[in-house]
Design a protein around this nucleic acid. Structure first.
Lengths: 205, 205
DNA sequence: ATAATAAATGACACAGTGTCACTTGTCAAT
DNA sequence: ATTGACAAGTGACACTGTGTCATTTATTAT
């Protein structure tokens, strides 16, 4: 987590600094991003950066988690619109992410994140479901999911469904960003895979 | 790819060098591994390393792909034993990977790989299915898979099934290595998720 | 024996990180 | 208004690690 000093910063300066960081992380993947570029862009001294953050990763994951928090909120409202159908909601989310994502910087930022995935990042991504990781919030989300049509006997098994859907959605994002897939192709493939998940990979006897 | 010089090396020296590299990559994740440690362990000059490899990544992915080639062969034979049932085969593979993986260094090497995943690595992992990436070899693998029980109309859609199974299996590996799951728990969870994939996440109407 | 080609070497220039002693700013108490 | 105490800001610096290159050493062909 960023240090207290960072949170004491006046709103405008903090915002400016985060923008500079996002720009750098959009330019290059985490390992190639440099603190020098961030402080230059933000017009602060190198030492100041270390007043605010532990290191590069600290700034990076703060930024990533912040973005994810927004996506998480969006996912919740999409889930409501789809009456708790987790797969239909995921399809819509996927669509929205590809088509209506506005900011160029933000786009590149996610692209770099997806193409250079560490475990921490994957955790951050799947937190679309988990909110701020508090199990309290998690419960709230799972409550939204319509469990009647799910193929589980115990309600707590819903976690496995979520994980499966997240894993497959995640991989689709990565493929879309790394390959030469058009948006339309990507979405069609995604829908197909989601349907396979719904109905099962194996034929019903 | 490693340079020609590397392949010209006498077998023993090449082997020694690769062992030194594996040891270093088992000690630390890719970004923290250092060439200095590799050349020290292998007793060669720093410059020599650059005669053999482009850079650190070059050595790393050569090693990773080599390991994956072995796993791929193993998966094919497991698939045969399971009469082309891709999910049962995957369960057995998962089990074997967790339980019968022998070498300590190899174990740590995979652990680091899984916890610090780049897109290239994920590609390398899912190549369990794809062999040496030639579509020729890929066809051979898909031919092994028993397609009769699969929930697809066109045989070429088998690729989506494979990707889904791989994505979910992959995530299970990562979780096992990053979390505090026992082998038994991990395998039980994995089986449960694989069954959900077989039968579908949604109830049959 | 000699030339020519390939391999090996380690000193070095360069780039980036994290630290620290020091300077500057802020604000409450007098 | 002045002082003192604490928070924030600074950039030079030591350190670590990378990739290069001129030079040396080994190997092979003639």
């Amino acid at each position: 987590m960023p240090k207290q000093t960072f949170f004491n910063l006046p709103e405008s300066k903090r915002h400016h600094l985060l923008e500079a960081a996002e720009k750098e992380f959009a330019r290059a993947p985490l390992s190639e991003a440099s603190i020098a570029n961030i402080v230059k862009e933000a017009c602060i001294a190198r030492g100041s950066f270390y007043q605010y953050f532990e290191d590069k990763e600290d700034a990076y994951f703060f930024l990533l988690n912040q973005q994810m928090k927004e996506l998480n909120m969006r996912f919740i409202s999409i889930l409501k619109e789809n009456n708790g159908d987790i797969i239909d909601a995921m399809i819509e989310m996927y669509h929205e992410f590809l088509i209506v994502l506005p900011d160029e910087n933000e786009h590149d930022f996610f692209k770099n994140a997806l193409l250079n995935v560490t475990h921490k990042m994957e955790n951050s991504f799947t937190s679309i479901f988990e909110g701020n990781h508090s199990s309290e919030h998690m419960k709230e989300v799972t409550k939204l999911i319509n469990v009647d049509c799910l193929n589980i006997s115990d309600e707590k098994d819903i976690i496995y469904i979520i994980k499966i859907v997240a894993a497959v959605a995640f991989r689709n994002f990565v493929e879309k960003y790394s390959g030469a897939l058009s948006d339309e192709e990507a979405i069609n493939i995604f829908k197909m895979e989601m349907n396979l998940l719904k109905n099962g990979l194996y034929k019903k006897k």
